[in-house]
Design a protein around this nucleic acid. Structure first.
Lengths: 122, 122, 122, 122
DNA sequence: GTGGTCTAGACCACG
DNA sequence: GTGGTCTAGACCACC
């Protein structure tokens, strides 16, 4: 379900957060589904339970999952994260566009590039 | 010339690299201009000389500057970095666009957003 | 009669205690009324009987109910809890007021806030 | 500077967060002052460095302090926490007032109590 | 020396 | 069995 890259400089818990939040955002995991327990996932990924614990704590704090102590962790409804995530993504897009302009890409070039990347749609 | 943000989570040398490379890319520093010496810049920014040394090493490796031992560091010609930088920026843009789609933005919404961000031009 | 929030961080038995004590305090349950049996309430709330048992034990210890072995649990008379509850609430109010002052609220601001919260009365 | 209560049921890191945030809110620690290092404070309180690390991480996330990796932790300016803290305190006050009403305190009684608690002020 | 991450192993409350 | 907390000890990047 999740593949870690131990050579990656980023901390493991961050990779877990990223992978799981992506699965939740794209809808692969539907609301109120139970996630693997801290210990189980830790064993599956051969990492320490504390590391998974930390990842789950962050996911909960960011609204992607909710935790019921003694029972497990469950996928939250999209309403909990939607707003925050949107502004975050827009922020990232803005930064990428600024860099594009800095490096000399013209407006038409960027528009063409977006058009091509989104070619599947419509 | 450069303003550092010590509260930023990124290491200082990385901030120096970013700031200087931006100045070079946008043309504020023209080719073959001499950069301040490692020790001078370190004093100006009240930072450890090792930190500046490291930044200059990275800038050289990425083709933004060239070093003449015993003489100093000089701005390289755009040809040395242009290609690499472009592909890097395009990579970043692609990632941002993927996230936008994942979070539910439609093609028209993204195009409109790009149009607005680039509104100054054309 | 009682609605539990399993996502709440507080333990279930604590929620049961809170809900029942509120019903008793506000007079919705009058003295000497019989409470549902441990097993019945546990089934109604789809919860482990031990949890309800624990809640009832706490309620008895705090004077809200009394237990007749083999017969059931009954609502106690207000006299048993009134004094303790009042001092507890006053304690909580005092702490909240201390924090308000610490955070910079002036006396008049607090008075106005209380006035507004209690606006229905008098 | 800080006294812990190991018999307290609340986690140690939470106690540290509470104590330090209070000191910051009441102005006992002024902005840009350096806090003790993670290891030093851990030794002073005879707890594990991880526990202090966690407390500092929370304080940073809530805007009470800022961290410069490799240098230490510093008190943030009030602007970073003011707004969030105010709404949190108001929330607590509201809950306390609701309980007061539930337990039978009249509006005039509450106002008198507030008046007395704030008696020092004007 | 500083903060940041990770492991290994332990204990606790809850249900 | 589950999540939550804590300890002990280790390694790393940064400055």
């Amino acid at each position: 379900m999740i593949i870690l890259d131990f050579r990656d400089k980023r901390p493991i818990y961050e990779q877990v957060v990223e992978k799981l939040s992506q699965l939740i955002i794209c809808g692969a995991l539907s609301a109120d589904t139970r996630l693997p327990s801290v210990r189980n996932l830790a064993m599956d990924l051969s990492v320490n339970p504390n590391t998974i614990q930390r990842a789950y704590a962050i996911l909960e704090q960011e609204g992607y999952i909710y935790t019921i102590t003694g029972r497990g962790n469950y996928i939250a409804s999209p309403a909990s994260w939607q707003k925050g995530k949107l502004s975050e993504v827009i922020d990232e897009l803005t930064k990428a566009l600024e860099k594009s302009r800095l490096v000399g890409m013209s407006k038409t070039e960027v528009l063409a590039f977006v058009d091509q990347t989104y070619k599947n749609e419509e």
